[in-house]
């Protein structure tokens, strides 16, 4: 077991820019965070906030269509300076990824067994028989009933939830230390989502795998993550332990998100709603990106972007007025 305090992954000033029709669109704007071994980090935000792009930038998938700057240290080594070929020995082995729609990320023409064994072949030195045994073991781990008989099945013979389990089994084949999960349960029903989340949690605990979980659902974060990072318009607005952030949010956006979820409020009363919509990437405000929708915004918010700053007890927030909000929440 690795040292708990040591960061497995350190992301520093990650910036991803897309070029479209002669304009630079900054989808991710200088985000920094750490992931420790065996930890579940939630990356939460609404659509277009840059959470998925951040994840793809870490693993080198974003550079096909954009410019990625900053540093991503994997056990102290910068991944961004590596070529695709050099990345191969990290990507898919030490770091694995699972996606929202498992149907499109599984090859429909190959049996599930073959796809798992393929990954085993690439990343382990097991022989054929051992590979098959391991594949069965993996399917068993992810909770697929009668695993040995399902090796010969094709992806379309599995239900949505089972396919996501297969994806996780493939991702586990290389004994990864970090699992990047991009909205893994968004396409699933709530009872299946619950099963998959429990599975991910047990993996994190039993195999000491760190997970970065991208989601838009604060409930999912509350149920699975140790720490959470909230994104808005490409920037991190708040990070901290799940309990701190969800119970005492410091940023007006996090507060707004939490209050728009109808929980613990009398039925049929108006929900708290954040006015307006998130800004388009080609029309980002000069100051704080949330300022046009923020009830607290003042001149300073329109003029300058607030930096993510530590607020004592492990929570960091990017707002010019964090102190005031804290009092309001507590009141």
């Amino acid at each position: 077991m690795t040292n708990q305090n040591e960061s497995l992954l350190q992301v520093r000033d990650l910036t991803t820019t897309f070029h479209s029709k002669g304009r630079a669109l900054r989808a991710v704007d200088g985000i920094s965070f750490d992931v420790r071994a065996g930890e579940v980090l939630g990356l939460v935000g609404e659509s277009g906030s840059g959470k998925s792009i951040s994840l793809r930038s870490i693993i080198g998938l974003a550079r096909d269509y954009g410019t990625v700057e900053g540093n991503v240290y994997w056990k102290g080594e910068d991944l961004l300076t590596r070529t695709d070929k050099q990345l191969q020995c990290v990507r898919g082995s030490q770091i694995s990824m699972i996606f929202q729609e498992p149907m499109t990320s599984l090859n429909p023409l190959l049996t599930v067994g073959l796809q798992i064994e393929e990954n085993l072949k690439a990343h382990t030195d097991l022989d054929r028989r051992a590979r098959k045994a391991r594949a069965i073991e993996l399917l068993d781990t992810v909770g697929i009933p009668s695993a040995s008989s399902r090796l010969k099945d094709f992806p379309h013979q599995f239900s949505g939830g089972m396919r996501q389990r297969v994806m996780i089994a493939i991702a586990l084949a290389s004994n990864p230390e970090l699992l990047l999960a991009d909205e893994p349960t968004t396409a699933l029903d709530v009872t299946i989502q619950d099963q998959i989340l429990q599975l991910l949690l047990s993996l994190a605990k039993n195999l000491n795998i760190a997970i970065v979980l991208v989601t838009h659902d604060l409930g999912v974060v509350a149920q699975t993550c140790d720490r959470v990072a909230v994104m808005y318009a490409g920037r991190l607005v708040e990070t901290g332990s799940v309990r701190d952030v969800l119970k005492r949010p410091q940023h007006p956006y996090t507060l707004g998100l939490l209050k728009s979820v109808p929980e613990n409020i009398p039925p049929r009363t108006p929900l708290y709603s954040v006015p307006g919509t998130p800004p388009a990437l080609d029309a980002l405000p000069k100051g704080c990106a949330f300022a046009p929708r923020c009830y607290k915004a003042e001149d300073v918010c329109l003029g300058s972007k607030p930096l993510l700053s530590q607020l004592g007890d492990g929570i960091s927030s990017a707002c010019h007025f964090t102190a005031d909000i804290r009092e309001e929440v507590l009141a």
């Binding site: 304009r23 080609d282 029309a283 980002l284 405000p285 000069k286």
Partner: peptide, 8 residues
């Protein structure tokens, strides 16, 4: 003023 406005 948005970035777009400045551009224009």
């Amino acid at each position: 003023m948005t970035q777009l406005d400045t551009l224009q």
